[in-house]
């Protein structure tokens, strides 16, 4: 059936799976039924069952992917609304972001090494905390596998969005500012959309986390990888 490969049909199906999962999550209240996760899993199952390759899907998927950049620009609005708070604590923000960025890249590299990942996989995991465009750029430039990075980035975001608030609570992080910030730092835009659901303030600090960590990671990850013996 050629129609199954039609890009408009594939886009519709992506919307359909996402909406279905959203509905299911709301009805059942089960957190694990994350719409992003379910839509990805269902779509992969469908494509594999119908023997359609990713390149074919991408012809439709790119039209959705295209809006990601615009959506990231739109994060400037919640950021603007929190500007006065940011100004008041610029130093704590910069210090904690720097700490989070370095801790993130170093920990994922050392852990991956420890658990026996190959060189390319270690490099692909290094930028996993930041949004796909930045992460794929770093991964590709340092000799990693960019598609693997994209997948791990999305998985990290889903995990951070689902478990983030629990981890925040368990680590005794009490202020909503620190909590939002750490979720954005660890789980980029996907974590931010989860934080946004909780409150606009949470979400705004999460978007600060994702922005600053994006910048820091773009600048520091190559240096850290170099330092840890993964030079190009």
């Amino acid at each position: 059936m050629d129609f199954l490969q039609n890009k408009y049909f594939l886009i519709t199906l992506t919307f359909g799976f996402y909406l279905g999962a959203q509905l299911l999550q709301r009805r059942t209240g089960v957190k694990l039924l994350n719409p992003i996760l379910i839509a990805i899993a269902a779509m992969i199952c469908f494509l594999m069952a119908c023997d359609i390759d990713y390149a074919t899907y991408k012809q439709g998927g790119d039209y959705i992917d295209f809006w990601l950049k615009v959506a990231v620009v739109a994060l400037g609005v919640p950021l603007y609304k929190q500007l006065s708070t940011i100004k008041r604590q610029l130093l704590p923000l910069l210090v904690s972001e720097l700490a989070g960025c370095v801790a993130g890249v170093v920990s994922v590299v050392l852990l991956a090494q420890l658990f026996g990942a190959s060189r390319e996989v270690v490099i692909s995991l290094a930028p996993k905390a930041v949004t796909t465009p930045i992460a794929m750029e770093i991964s590709g430039a340092m000799g990693g596998i960019a598609p693997l990075t994209a997948a791990v980035v999305v998985a990290t975001g889903i995990f951070g969005g689902m478990a983030g608030f629990k981890i925040v609570k368990m680590s005794h992080i009490h202020s909503p500012i620190a909590g939002g910030l750490s979720i954005g730092t660890a789980a980029h835009a996907v974590g931010t959309s989860a934080a946004m659901e909780r409150s606009e303030r949470y979400g705004a600090f999460s978007s600060i986390g994702l922005t600053l960590n994006g910048l820091f990671t773009a600048l520091l990850a190559p240096m850290i990888l170099d330092f840890l013996g993964y030079s190009v």
């Binding site: 992003i36 779509m43 992969i44 809006w67 959309s193």
Partner: peptide, 23 residues
């Protein structure tokens, strides 16, 4: 528009996630 995009950010990550099937 920004409120719409920001609240549905996750959806725009789905195609990149499907790239998983290649690795």
């Amino acid at each position: 528009l920004s409120a719409f995009l920001v609240h549905n950010l996750g959806f725009f990550f789905v195609p990149a996630g499907i790239g998983l099937m290649n690795c």
